[in-house]
Amino acid sequence: MQIFVKTLTGKTITSEVEPSDTIENVKAKIQDKEGIPPDQQRLIFAGKQLEDGRTLSDYNIQKESTLHLVLR
């Protein structure tokens, strides 16, 4: 499924993921596309910071959901 990751600069990254993918996994995909190390990434969805060990389905993230990427 496709999800969108919006950066603070307003850029939107499209990523191909599975509901069973972990947040860590998603951060790795963002690193592949943007070159941002996962340890600098914080992903936010519905006002919550997403934890690395959890999966997209844990957070009820569905296709075409938009996550927000904040850098630390």
Rank of each mutant, 00 (worst) to 15 (best):
M1G: 04
M1R: 04
M1E: 03
M1Q: 04
M1H: 05
M1A: 03
M1Y: 14
Q2P: 08
Q2Y: 13
I3E: 02
I3V: 05
F4E: 03
F4R: 07
F4D: 03
F4N: 06
V5T: 03
V5W: 02
V5Q: 00
V5L: 08
K6D: 04
T7C: 14
T7K: 04
T7G: 06
T7I: 13
T7F: 15
T7V: 09
L8D: 11
T9D: 14
T9I: 07
T9P: 05
T9G: 13
T9F: 13
G10P: 02
G10R: 04
K11A: 09
K11D: 08
K11F: 10
K11G: 07
K11Q: 09
K11S: 07
K11V: 09
T12V: 14
T12G: 03
T12Y: 10
T12M: 12
I13N: 02
I13C: 04
T14Q: 09
T14E: 08
S15Q: 15
S15N: 08
S15T: 15
S15M: 15
E16C: 14
E16K: 09
E16W: 15
E16Q: 12
E16F: 13
E16S: 11
V17Y: 06
V17H: 13
E18Q: 13
E18W: 13
E18N: 13
E18A: 12
P19D: 06
P19R: 07
P19Q: 06
S20Q: 09
D21M: 11
D21E: 09
T22C: 03
T22N: 04
T22Q: 04
T22E: 02
T22V: 05
I23A: 02
I23K: 00
I23L: 04
I23S: 02
I23W: 02
E24V: 07
E24A: 15
E24H: 11
E24S: 12
N25A: 14
N25Y: 11
N25P: 02
N25H: 12
N25T: 14
N25I: 14
V26D: 00
V26F: 05
K27D: 00
K27R: 05
K27Q: 03
A28Y: 12
A28Q: 13
A28I: 13
A28W: 11
K29H: 07
K29C: 04
K29E: 04
K29S: 07
K29Y: 10
I30G: 02
I30K: 00
I30W: 01
Q31E: 09
Q31V: 06
Q31G: 11
Q31H: 14
Q31W: 15
Q31C: 14
Q31L: 11
D32E: 14
D32K: 13
D32Q: 14
K33C: 07
K33I: 14
K33V: 12
K33P: 04
K33N: 07
K33Y: 09
E34T: 15
E34P: 03
E34S: 14
G35M: 05
G35K: 06
G35P: 03
G35Q: 05
G35H: 07
I36P: 05
I36C: 04
I36L: 06
I36H: 08
I36W: 14
I36V: 08
P37S: 08
P37R: 09
P38Y: 12
P38R: 14
P38L: 14
P38K: 15
P38F: 13
P38I: 15
P38G: 09
D39Q: 11
D39M: 09
D39L: 09
D39N: 11
D39F: 10
D39P: 07
D39C: 12
Q40N: 09
Q40T: 08
Q41V: 12
Q41P: 01
R42N: 12
R42D: 11
R42V: 15
R42A: 10
R42Q: 12
L43I: 07
L43W: 01
L43K: 01
L43F: 04
I44L: 12
I44T: 08
F45E: 01
F45N: 02
F45H: 07
G47T: 04
G47L: 03
G47C: 07
G47R: 04
K48M: 13
K48H: 11
K48C: 09
Q49W: 14
Q49D: 14
Q49P: 11
L50Q: 01
L50N: 00
L50I: 03
E51A: 08
E51I: 09
E51H: 08
D52S: 06
D52T: 05
D52F: 04
D52A: 06
D52G: 05
D52K: 04
G53A: 10
G53K: 12
R54I: 06
R54A: 08
R54M: 12
R54P: 04
R54E: 04
T55Q: 07
T55L: 08
T55P: 06
T55V: 06
T55K: 10
T55M: 10
L56K: 00
L56C: 01
L56A: 02
S57A: 14
S57V: 07
S57L: 11
S57W: 08
D58Y: 14
D58A: 04
Y59Q: 03
Y59H: 03
Y59C: 01
Y59W: 01
N60K: 09
N60Y: 06
I61R: 01
I61K: 02
I61F: 02
I61V: 08
I61N: 01
Q62V: 13
Q62Y: 09
Q62I: 13
Q62N: 09
Q62A: 10
Q62M: 11
K63M: 10
K63W: 09
K63Q: 12
K63F: 07
E64G: 15
E64W: 13
E64M: 10
E64R: 08
S65G: 06
S65Q: 07
S65I: 04
S65F: 08
S65R: 03
T66Y: 07
T66A: 04
L67F: 03
L67A: 01
L67M: 05
L67D: 01
H68Y: 15
L69E: 02
L69K: 00
L69P: 00
L69I: 05
L69W: 00
L69S: 02
L69T: 02
L69G: 01
V70S: 07
V70Q: 09
V70R: 10
V70T: 08
V70D: 06
V70A: 07
L71H: 07
L71D: 07
L71N: 06
L71F: 08
R72D: 11
R72M: 14
